[in-house]
Amino acid sequence: MLSILTIVNLLMPILFHLADGGGNISLWESALQTGAFTFFLCTIFSVVVASDSVAGEFSWGTIKLLLIRPWSRSKILLSKYIAVVLFSLLCTVLLIIVSYGVSAIFFSGGMGGTMMGERIGPRYYLLIILCDYVDLFMTVALAFMLSAVFRASGLAIGLSLFIMFAKGIFNMLFNPERYSWAKFLPFMHMDLSQYLASSVGPGGVTLGFSILILAVYYVLFLAIAWTVFGKRDVAA
């Protein structure tokens, strides 16, 4: 997975370089485009790992061996979750290094171009990655919960990726301008990069409100995962 991520990440700036006839693309623009594109892959892989982390133990049957060690179930689940988060961080860091590194080889010129009223430079690049990571982090928490609750990795992967791609459609269907309750849905708030352009989000909410909603859903996902995992009987 990590090697696929690296290779795609490596190829993108090369493609940009080939497509770029007039030398219009700056280093940070290339890094930004590469990062934004391969971040999809980063999210998908993290979701796959999260979905498989608990469900896989159930389908292999090894969960029984883990749960009869002198550790409480919540600690075992916590260690699983930490491993998942570490994997997603590793993916992200790898993505940052490769997208910047390869862009630096093919492009020069440092900062350049503007997007949403801000010059594309390291600060903007890192802010975008941070926003993407928040999105990933929420999706992974959801995948992890589904994995722990349904114990079927296929279902968890499918549902999380569905939500990841259908977010836009959801946002259209449940437009907060039309339904006032829609602003409490998590999908509205997962893409924080909208606040880079304007301080007002969908339905006139603020960044603070978005973060609050995300935090509430995050706690809810994990609480469900921990409760169900702690209580459930482990049968074949």
Partner: peptide
């Protein structure tokens, strides 16, 4: 007292499943 009890136990429940 799950942790104090289980520390005395070694077990195979059903099939011996391992990480393949």
């Amino acid at each position: 007292h799950f942790e104090q009890a289980i520390v005395h136990v070694g077990a195979i429940v059903e099939n011996p499943e391992m990480y393949k």
